[in-house]
Amino acid sequence: NPITQSQFVPLGEVLCCAISDMNTAQIVVTQESLLERLMKHYPGIAIPSEDILYTTLGTLIKERKIYHTGEGYFIVTP
């Protein structure tokens, strides 16, 4: 039996792509809307728990890849 190979993409990278897409579409990015986006637009991805999502978003903020305001999460533009 051949083994199907899937590509590994770090969660942080997927979140940045999803946040960027949602920002472009002017969709408010909350943790809930982000999870919905992942389920709908990234089939096959293991949906992270709320704790993992929260921690990963926190890491992306520390790395200055995203920022959070009262209006949601946004990509940091250079």
Rank of each mutant, 00 (worst) to 15 (best):
H68C: 11
T69M: 05
E32P: 05
A25I: 01
Q7N: 10
E50A: 11
I19F: 01
V9L: 12
I66N: 02
P10V: 09
L38H: 00
A46P: 15
V76F: 15
I27R: 04
G72V: 01
D51Y: 07
G44P: 08
M39Y: 14
A18N: 04
E50C: 11
S49D: 14
L60V: 01
E50R: 15
G44D: 11
E63A: 10
I47P: 09
E71Y: 03
V14K: 05
V76Y: 06
T24S: 12
A25N: 12
I52N: 04
Y73P: 00
I47W: 05
H41Y: 12
T69N: 07
T24V: 08
I19Y: 04
M39R: 13
H41N: 10
T56H: 13
G44M: 07
I61P: 00
E32Q: 13
D51A: 10
D21T: 06
K65Y: 03
A18C: 15
T69C: 09
L57H: 00
T30G: 03
F74H: 09
P43D: 06
P2K: 12
P78Q: 09
Y73W: 06
K65D: 01
T77Q: 07
P10Q: 10
I61T: 07
R64D: 13
T69E: 08
Q31E: 08
P10E: 06
N23F: 00
I61D: 01
T30M: 01
Q26R: 10
S33R: 08
L57M: 06
Q26I: 01
E36R: 10
K65F: 02
T24E: 09
L35E: 04
E71M: 14
Q7T: 12
L38Q: 01
V14E: 06
Q7W: 06
K65E: 02
H68I: 04
T55F: 12
C16N: 04
Y54S: 15
Q26D: 12
E63V: 03
E71A: 09
Y73H: 03
P10L: 14
I3E: 08
G70H: 13
H68Q: 12
Y42N: 15
S33A: 08
E13A: 05
V14S: 05
P48G: 05
L11S: 04
T77L: 07
L53T: 02
S33K: 12
S6E: 13
K40R: 10
I61G: 02
L57S: 01
E32H: 04
V28K: 11
V28C: 09
Y73L: 04
N1Y: 05
M39C: 08
R64N: 11
G58K: 11
T56C: 15
E13S: 06
Q31T: 13
I66M: 02
Y54W: 06
E63S: 09
T77G: 12
H41Q: 11
Q31H: 06
T24I: 10
I66E: 01
I52L: 10
Y67K: 13
P43C: 07
I61L: 12
E13P: 06
A18W: 03
V9C: 10
G70S: 09
V14M: 15
I3Q: 11
T55L: 10
V76M: 14
G12M: 15
N23A: 01
A25T: 06
Q31A: 10
T59G: 10
T56M: 11
I52Q: 12
L57G: 02
G44F: 08
T4R: 08
L11Y: 06
L15A: 04
E36W: 04
I19M: 02
G58I: 07
E63L: 07
T55W: 06
I61A: 05
Q5V: 11
G12C: 10
E71T: 07
K65N: 02
E71Q: 14
F74K: 14
E36T: 09
S49E: 07
I27C: 04
P48A: 04
P43I: 03
E36L: 09
I75A: 11
S6P: 09
G12V: 11
P78L: 03
S33C: 02
G58R: 14
I75V: 12
T55Y: 06
P2S: 15
F74C: 06
I19C: 00
C16L: 14
E63Q: 12
F74T: 07
V14T: 07
Q26H: 07
I47E: 05
I52A: 11
K65T: 03
M22N: 00
Y42W: 05
H68F: 13
H68K: 11
H68P: 03
V9D: 15
C16Q: 14
F74L: 04
G70R: 10
L53E: 01
I19E: 02
G70Y: 12
C17A: 14
Q26A: 08
R64C: 04
N23T: 04
T30I: 01
A18P: 01
S6Q: 08
A25G: 05
N1W: 03
V29I: 01
T24M: 15
K40T: 15
E13W: 04
G70N: 09
K40M: 12
L57Q: 01
E71V: 05
T24C: 14
I3F: 10
T4C: 12
H41F: 09
G44C: 08
V9S: 13
E13K: 08
G58S: 11
P10I: 13
P10H: 14
P48I: 04
T69Y: 03
Q31F: 10
F8E: 13
T4I: 13
V9Y: 12
K40A: 12
V9R: 14
P10N: 15
G58W: 05
S49R: 05
K40S: 12
G44W: 09
S49T: 13
G12S: 15
I52C: 10
M39F: 05
E13G: 04
E50P: 15
L57V: 03
V76P: 04
T30E: 02
T77W: 04
C17E: 15
L35F: 12
V28N: 09
I45R: 07
Q26V: 02
I75M: 10
E50H: 15
T77S: 12
P43A: 05
H68D: 08
T56D: 01
R64Q: 08
T56S: 08
Q5E: 13
Y73D: 03
L15G: 00
A25M: 09
Q5C: 13
T30K: 02
Y54T: 13
I45Q: 09
V14P: 01
I66V: 11
A18D: 02
H68G: 04
P78W: 02
E63C: 09
S49N: 14
L53P: 00
L11N: 00
G44T: 10
D21G: 03
Q31I: 08
Y42H: 12
V28M: 09
T30W: 00
E36C: 08
R64S: 04
